[in-house]
Design a protein around this nucleic acid. Sequence first.
DNA 1: ATGAAACTCCGTAGTTGTACGGAGATCCGT
DNA 2: ACGGATCTCCGTACAACTACGGAGTTTCAT
Lengths: 212, 212
Amino acid sequence: MNSIRLAIIDDHQVVLDGLQAMFNGYPGISIVLATTQQDELLSHLQNHEVDVALVDIQMPEINGIELCTRILKTDNSVRILAFSSFDDTHFVKQMLRKGALGYLLKNAARDVLIDAVTSVSRGERYVDEFLQKQILDESLTGERRSMYEIPLTKREREVLKLIGEENTNQEIADKLFLSLRTVETHRSNLSQKLGAKNAVSLVKEAIKRGLV
Amino acid sequence: MNSIRLAIIDDHQVVLDGLQAMFNGYPGISIVLATTQQDELLSHLQNHEVDVALVDIQMPEINGIELCTRILKTDNSVRILAFSSFDDTHFVKQMLRKGALGYLLKNAARDVLIDAVTSVSRGERYVDEFLQKQILDESLTGERRSMYEIPLTKREREVLKLIGEENTNQEIADKLFLSLRTVETHRSNLSQKLGAKNAVSLVKEAIKRGLV
DNA sequence: ATGAAACTCCGTAGTTGTACGGAGATCCGT
DNA sequence: ACGGATCTCCGTACAACTACGGAGTTTCAT
């Protein structure tokens, strides 16, 4: 049985080393690439076979979902295992929909890591136990959807973004070619959806959602 | 020559493993503790000698500066090496003032890590090269101080914090036993100091400063 | 003990955002 | 082709914040 060819990308050298160390004594997995550069990963994928890519999805300047897409565009046979300390369930679902086959939290222990990589290499979905439970809970209660998940319309997101960028309603109206009143409506809808008390809550939401 | 007794705290297991791996082949440093729990670190310090503590200063629920203080309160002979991916120079300075002897970025390579731990163990300050340069630049130009650094008075910080927590001026006045007008004054001073256009800018600042 | 900085408070006016509630136009999926 | 969601716009009244500018009182370091 061949060992699993694993490529790793993370912007922190220690994490790369930590992972190498973790997999070192384990023959079933061999690390074929460990890098901090997304270009390096992509070009590697063009020239070499890789079974699993362990991807840190919260790197500066790079959007995790975007990176996921690019990886699959380069080689759609790679199984992606997302690696993050971001535990918002909605984000997890997003990643899984965008092509990741697994989602692991950074505080995972060695055994879990090996287990996850192995599962994913076989084409099986693997989601961190904690998150699984979380998602299940949310599905059951139906109600406990994270703030994050409250769906906003495209327009609302645009407006929220501009609010976060310190525009007044009038400025937003000008930029989006809307009437002031329309912007006010969107804003009011946003406030209601997000349970926001005032501009401050809205900004915080905008930041949470990565709009700012 | 005895090897340096190093304690590590970080909330991610991989990072702990990565660090252990990095120091493994190096006899000059021996890791006496690697934990994700702050309590564990503190109780260890009470019963054992530790030369250097490598501290992840951005852990959930725990404020880096606060942790620093606690460590030194437990054993003020420990040399603290802050370990973070947060590269705001003002924050770095804060940490160094609050008792950390070194500040290292998480993307540091093995050699740098060893160098840093060794220096710090000798009581020498160690600051990440990139940050050193940054700080120097800022000192020279005098002007490029990060927004972060604009000094706020205690009251102003209190007010800014409450603004960030979604209070209206009236609510802030009530909580601090001030007149509404006073709060308005503070707010106006804050806006001026921070070049804030509106509430939104203020919140962003509050977040940057870790007040929220 | 003296002065600078910080903290406190106020008046007046004007701008911006919030809270109601109503309504036509458009897009999109079954 | 129909219905629901979305997007657009408006009236009115009120709440919250901003922009000026002025001034007395602590507090604290030299």
